[in-house]
Nucleic acid binder design. Structure first.
Lengths: 336, 336
DNA sequence: GTGAAAGCGCTAACAG
DNA sequence: CTGTTAGCGCTTTCAC
């Protein structure tokens, strides 16, 4: 691979002139340099540029699970927002693994100008280190609890769960179960607490056996749903804290031959691509996923372009309950 | 951020000794260096290392659409395979955009040790340039037609489509439609040609109005399906060339109130996460997606570790027709 | 406008 | 085993 010295030599100028040409400045031997670059197939080394300038013209995005359609949509929103600014998006997938997440943070912090991340756990410390080091950081969907104040974009998890519970209670349900996500993560904790609060708000005592702690993965939805159905006193409705666990719960229910919503009402959090085509169509708490990513990207870009200090921003986006076919009245003969 | 000089100074040694310590070699002042690193919070600059060594300890993966579950699974397989080798995976999403793909290739080629990519089009030239420059490259799912011979991992698209057509013909269908993917891409072209060949193999003349060219996106599945249903002579079955377009086709059919498989049989290519929970469960050509990624990763890692020339490998993985509920006999009264 | 030269942070060859 | 030094490829003073 040709370097800037080769080009300078071929064009009969100094490397400084080549740099100037590259930067779009006017130089006398423009044509010669252009030809030399062309003939040698020269491409400036991004690594050398980064070392020299400390900038990378790219941002990093770290998500816990890229195969979750929600995070895929988030990434879409980020890319859409960031592209016009000439920044590359480099994606890291921690695969729900704390060690891998840490490695990615360290790697991308050094190779990008800023980071958008959904940390695995609120106890994560790495992001705080980054922020302290002055590396631009925006939390999206999740945040950490300790450390400095950081830009973040969340959705109104509490309102979403409350709407779901209100809807079920309105249909006459009282034995409502929940399958929570990781309670050490922001959405897991908030949705879990919101469920308990909403039930209390309706004056309903929650049977502890109906409160299950999952981990956001499909398998945990499957297992907990099967468990719930094995209970002597079954629930008449269930609120599942994310899309993947909802999918798992539906698989379990399908295998058990449970009729939804006749025997059990199901509400998921986060829409699924084919939610309307399921049998029955799934009632879910839906949120503006692409927009969530875009909002986070806007905060980061703003911070990258700012000369002076930018105050920390906290954005909360609204959610919406989409009532479809998977929720219905309490089955007859159930203990009301 | 502290650099190696700061550490050397603090420990009272030369930078060379710090480097040696970092590389795990035995040095006399080990303890002093350890403490200096600890106290200064020193982290070696990856960028400087890359510039010096020309290696990056990471690989790049470029896919056309990360929100397609197939590519998400592919990435999973790659990460699983590559992690034990201490390599980071950096993901690029071209979002079906040729310009963006080119930018990603150029960027990642300079910042990674090797690339796994599913090129948008068989006419793409960038990958060839890379390969000529000696940058390790593996094609997965798709390849380019010109340029040097490159490692690749594909699936047996032809056999998959043939099985789908055989299955439908076995059920008595002859008016079989297809919605193809981008025919300038490997899987698009192969599945398209395989469809025509399989039909010819059964001695069936294909009505040209039943052959639609989509672009692998959901919307194109929706549009083409709606178009097909508007035809005076409707098909009795349809083979859709990928998962997203199948989802779109199902949405269109749902909106039109078409009963599957009573009025129309549907076969998709690529399984969908919830395919078994759809109404009816979807018949698909399924393939080992995670394994496809892993196979590509193995080829790349092998090439990265090899001292000498490694002959090019071409891997083709088998596919499997999963017959579920969306295919059935020809509707009565249809022109056989 | 232009070129010489220093330096971003690291590693490796070399001499001790 | 250790330190000195050159150099990866680029940008940016600085003096002309």
């Amino acid at each position: 691979m040709a370097n800037i010295q080769d080009v300078a030599k071929a064009a009969g100028v100094s490397t400084a002139s080549v740099t100037r040409y590259l930067a779009g400045q006017r130089i006398r031997s423009e044509e010669a340099v252009r030809r030399a670059i062309e003939e040698l197939g020269y491409r400036p080394s991004l690594v050398a540029r980064s070392l020299k300038s400390g900038r990378h013209q790219s941002i990093g995005v770290i998500v816990p699970d890229i195969s979750n359609p929600f995070f895929a949509a988030l990434v879409k929103g980020i890319e859409r927002e960031v592209r016009p600014h000439g920044l590359q998006v480099i994606l890291g997938n921690s695969d729900e693994d704390a060690e891998r997440e840490e490695a990615l943070v360290r790697e991308l912090a050094q190779r990008t100008d800023g980071l958008i991340m959904a940390p695995l756990s609120e106890n994560d410390e790495i992001p705080d280190l980054l922020a302290q080091a002055g590396h631009p950081l925006v939390f999206v969907d999740r945040e950490t609890s300790s450390g400095p104040d950081v830009d973040r974009v969340l959705v109104d998890n509490t309102a979403g769960i409350r709407q779901a519970v209100d809807h079920l209670v309105g249909l006459g349900h009282t034995r409502i179960a929940t399958i929570s996500g990781r309670v050490d993560s922001t959405p897991g904790r908030m949705r879990h607490e919101a469920f308990l609060a909403a039930m209390a708000g309706h004056g309903i005592d929650v049977d502890p056996t109906l409160v299950r702690r999952g981990d956001f993965r499909e398998e945990s939805g499957r297992l907990h749903m099967a468990d719930l159905w094995r209970l002597p006193q079954r629930p008449t409705a269930v609120v599942v804290a994310n899309n993947l666990m909802t999918a798992g719960a539906l698989v379990a229910l399908g295998a058990l031959g449970v009729r939804v919503p006749d025997e059990l009402s199901v509400v998921g959090f986060d829409d699924l691509p084919l939610a309307t085509l399921l049998d029955p169509p799934l009632t879910v708490v839906s949120r503006p996923d692409v927009e969530e990513g875009a909002a986070a990207a806007r905060l980061l870009v703003e911070r990258l372009h700012a000369d002076e200090h930018v105050p920390t921003a906290h954005v909360t986006l609204p959610v919406e309950l989409l009532v479809r076919g998977s929720t219905g009245p309490v089955p007859k003969g159930s203990p009301a």
